[in-house]
Each structure stands twice: as structure tokens, then as C-alpha cells.
Write a protein that binds this DNA or RNA. Structure first.
Length: 420
RNA sequence: GUGGGUGUAGCUCAGUUGGCUAGAGCACCAGAUUGUGGCUCUGGGGGCCGUGGGUUCGAGUCCCAUCAUCCACCCCA
């Protein structure tokens, strides 16, 4: 039995949790300003949901899922992402029969069996949004804008937005056939990975980083050159909307997302400083997904954002601004015979909503002062022989060192006036 | 799944060509005259030297394996 969290997982200890609270709060507030409501789906789902919803040729499904059998021999899988679950919930609860678009957000842990490295964990956390029931490119722009606004609110400036369109099944099929024809003669120049991509998902050969592959495919057309009239219009409307709203982006012909269900808009936001895993968020349109999962023919769009990566990017920022005094007052008991009395006072303070604590380890008076200081107390209440006899308390302000005596009956008011 | 780096106290690290009871700083605890914090000084607790083998009179130091961790590939958040 070793005390060690499993590989690729980690604890967020109490001293660090304020960072998480801060980004979670910012994220939720922003999503709600944009009109998105939280949805919580199960941490595990039927394995089949991910196989169909994510695509069984993807790396995620083919080699990264935590899949297990339950006691009734059902095959279940810890969610590797949350879009498939949202689609399932959308269908299961017949949301399409209500007001559309349905605008949802989620926040929670995801699981992928990957080799850990900077910004990549086996249990990691994503924030994401999904909007079902509109194909309006303004909605694509809204989603991108939401993602960027969160980054801005958190104080992150140095991000890059990459944008592309992967077309619809019709124009992509035309392009795919052309591309296969182009690549065919150069097959022997491709790396082993690209040879596999050539068979399964030839578009992905385009963003291979192996130099020999890049040489082999140099000059080949991109999907952009094959977009049909509708897809091209969708893409230019999106770009116009972004331009109108001063959102900078880079058109990236090589941005081809790994998940099978994407149509039209694809985007990624990178923060290069955080390492090789620099994609802090990414997403796109998935107009065929709801139908593919057995629902009505309803379009959708969404993105996901990695919270650990967000934290990495935020690490350079000043921590202090998020920290607060942990305690309003510390109750220092200078004489052991008043221990019982101190517990009663503590109870009153806490009932009055004052953040208060005391020593439980028999510290001396001096040590209690040190302890109060380390706990970040604004003030200390001194309780000893003198105070008990005169029915008062001594109140010390830890910042100003000022000390006053207050009648026992007025303790709560005095604390609020003197310290808070 | 592949490659490289690293594993010594809670944390950051020293530890000379293998050789006495394994060290420092920070952190923690206790003192520095009687009921008072941050600075300073003094003292103290705490180490299967990642784990398991091997070489040797002798291994923290060398060799092998294994695990973990970090970084990169891959993929992605």
C-alpha cells in the first residue's frame, strides 16, 4: 500500500484550491452572461455512446478510454469528453421539442489513458459549452467570443485563435477523393502514421509534422479550396462577424480536428508559453452528430477548454490577489481554565457569521499569537484572568497592532466595527 | 505506444576518484523571565538516500531491472 495518487492524477490541496475556485467562478459567470445554463451528466456512460459519438477510429476511442464491466456485465466507460453525453441527454430528454437553441455548459473531470506530460493528465478537467438547434454562423462567433472573454477576464493576453472550415459531408467527400488521388503516387514517401491516416482519415496527413511527409504533400490543395457554396458562405459570415467584433484570428488550412463529427467551423485557441500541449481550448460545429446518435436532425456547435492548461497559463500571474484573510478573528485563551468558556464564545461568533477559530493543541499564549498570525487572522480576541474578572474582552487588530477592551456583551458588534 | 532527463528530510537541493553516527536552506515545534504575532538568535523533531537485485571488505555514490516523475514524440483539453 503506497500513498500515491495513480499515474496522471493529482490532488488539489487546500493551499491551492483558491486558484480553482477563481477560474471556476469566472467561467460560470461568463457562461451565464452569454445565456448558457449548466448541465451535469454522469461521469461514466455506456461505452457504445463514445464509440458512436466520438468515432471509433479516433485515438480517444481506440486507445485512450477507461472502459470497465460493471457487476451486471455492462460495458461502461469513464467519459473522455462531454459532448457525447450532452448529445445523449439532448436526445433522451427530447430537448428538441422545446425552445431552441439549447445553450448548455459543463465543468468537470474527464478521463483519458494517455502518457502524462506538461498540460496532459489522465484525469483532467474541462469546461465546455454546447449549443443545439441553430446553424447560424453568428452562434459560432458567440461561442468563440465566450471562450476568448474567459481568457481575457482571467488576465490572459497572449493567445492565438486558429480557424478553419472542414466543410460538410458532401464537399468533404469530394475533397477526400481528390486528396487520395493526389497522395496515392507519393504513398511510399509517407511515414508509417500517415500511411494509416491515408487509409482512415486522409485529411489528417496534411498536418503531419514529419518533414518528408510535408515535402511529399507540398502544393496539394486544402479543404478550403473545395468548400461548397453553402459551406463557403457559412465560413465567410463567421469571419465577417468576428471581424465586426474585433476578434483576431488566423485562417489555418492545416487545422483538421481529430474527432469525426465535426462539420464546417473548426477552431483552436493556443497559448504557446505553456509547452507542447498548448491548445487551451478547441471546438467546432457538429451538425451531423445528434442524428448520428439516433436523434432528430439538429445542428450543434461547442467547444471544450482544459482547466489544467488554463492554470498553467495563469501560473505567472500574481497569486496574492486571489487570497483573502482566512479568519476574521482568532480566540486566544491565555489561561487553560477558560477553555470551556472559549468554546461557547466561538460558537456565538460563528453563529454571527464571523470566521473564527481557536487553538486545540495546548499552545502557550505566545504560540497562539504566532498561530493566529499564520492562519491569517485579522484580529485576536484575548481571553484570560483579567478579562474574565472584568467581564470584558481584549481585541487586537493584527495589522495595526491596535488593542482595545470591549464589554463582553458588545463583542460581536465591536469585532465588526474594529476588524471587518 | 516511443525517446531522453531525474529520483537523498514536508519543500529546494549539497553529498568530491565507492570509505566513520547522511548535510544545508526554507518549513515545522519549543525557548529567549512572569498574558501578545511578523524580524533576529538558540535548541529540537524529522531521512526504507524511489523499490528490488547485483558487484565489493564496504554502495547515497558503480551495474541491471522495475516503478514514479519531468520533458518531448504521438494525440489532444
Amino acid at each position: 500500500m503506497q500513498a500515491k495518487a495513480p499515474r496522471g492524477t493529482f490532488d488539489v490541496m487546500p493551499g491551492e484550491i483558491f486558484k480553482w475556485h477563481h477560474i471556476e467562478k469566472t467561467i460560470k459567470e461568463t457562461a451565464e452572461i452569454f445565456g448558457y445554463s449548466e448541465i451535469r451528466t454522469p461521469i461514466f456512460e455506456h461505452t457504445e455512446l463514445f464509440e458512436r459519438g466520438v468515432g471509433d477510429t479516433t485515438d480517444i476511442v481506440s486507445k485512450e478510454m477507461y472502459t470497465f464491466k460493471d457487476r451486471s456485465n455492462r460495458s461502461l466507460t469513464l467519459r473522455p469528453e462531454n459532448t457525447a453525453s450532452c448529445v445523449r441527454a439532448f436526445i433522451e430528454h427530447s430537448v428538441a421539442g422545446g425552445i431552441l437553441p439549447a445553450k448548455w455548459y459543463y465543468l468537470g473531470p474527464m478521463f483519458r489513458y494517455d502518457r502524462p506530460q506538461a498540460g496532459r493528465y489522465r484525469q483532467f478537467h474541462q469546461f465546455g459549452v454546447e449549443a443545439f438547434g441553430s446553424n447560424n454562423p453568428q452562434l459560432d462567433a458567440e461561442i468563440i467570443s465566450l471562450l476568448l472573454q474567459i481568457l481575457t477576464k482571467l488576465g490572459l493576453q497572449d493567445y492565438e485563435l486558429h480557424l478553419n472550415s472542414v466543410g460538410c459531408p458532401q464537399c468533404r467527400e469530394v475533397y477526400r477523393k481528390q486528396l487520395v488521388g493526389y497522395i496515392g503516387p507519393f504513398k511510399d514517401q509517407l511515414c508509417a502514421d500517415c500511411l494509416a491516416r491515408y487509409e482512415k482519415n486522409p485529411l489528417r496527413v496534411l498536418d503531419c509534422k514529419v518533414p518528408s511527409c510535408q515535402e511529399a504533400i507540398a502544393g496539394f490543395p486544402y479543404i478550403y479550396d473545395y468548400l461548397c457554396a453553402d459551406c463557403l458562405e457559412h465560413y465567410s459570415k463567421l469571419r465577417n462577424t468576428l471581424d465586426d467584433n474585433q476578434i483576431d484570428y488566423v485562417h489555418d488550412n492545416q487545422l483538421v480536428r481529430g474527432l469525426d463529427y465535426y462539420t464546417n467551423t473548426a477552431f483552436e485557441v493556443h497559448i504557446p508559453q505553456i509547452g507542447a500541449q498548448s491548445a487551451i481550448g478547441g471546438g467546432g460545429r457538429y451538425n451531423g452528430l445528434v442524428k448520428a446518435c439516433g436523434g432528430p436532425n439538429i445542428p450543434g456547435i461547442g467547444f471544450a477548454m482544459g482547466l489544467e492548461r488554463l492554470l498553467l497559463a495563469l501560473e505567472s500571474l500574481d497569486d496574492q490577489q486571489y487570497k483573502d484573510h482566512k479568519l476574521d478573528v482568532f480566540l486566544a485563551v491565555m489561561d487553560g481554565k477558560y477553555e470551556a468558556q472559549s468554546v461557547k464564545i466561538l460558537t456565538q461568533l460563528r453563529q454571527a457569521g464571523i470566521k473564527a477559530d481557536k487553538d486545540y493543541n495546548g499552545r502557550s499564549g505566545k504560540a497562539q499569537m504566532k498561530y493566529a498570525d499564520k492562519l491569517g487572522a485579522r484580529g485576536v480576541i484575548l481571553l484570560g484572568e483579567d478579562e474574565m474578572r472584568r467581564n470584558i474582552y481584549t481585541l487586537r487588530n493584527m495589522d495595526s497592532k491596535e488593542q482595545i477592551e470591549v464589554p463582553a456583551d458588545h463583542l460581536i458588534d465591536a469585532i465588526k466595527k474594529f476588524l471587518i
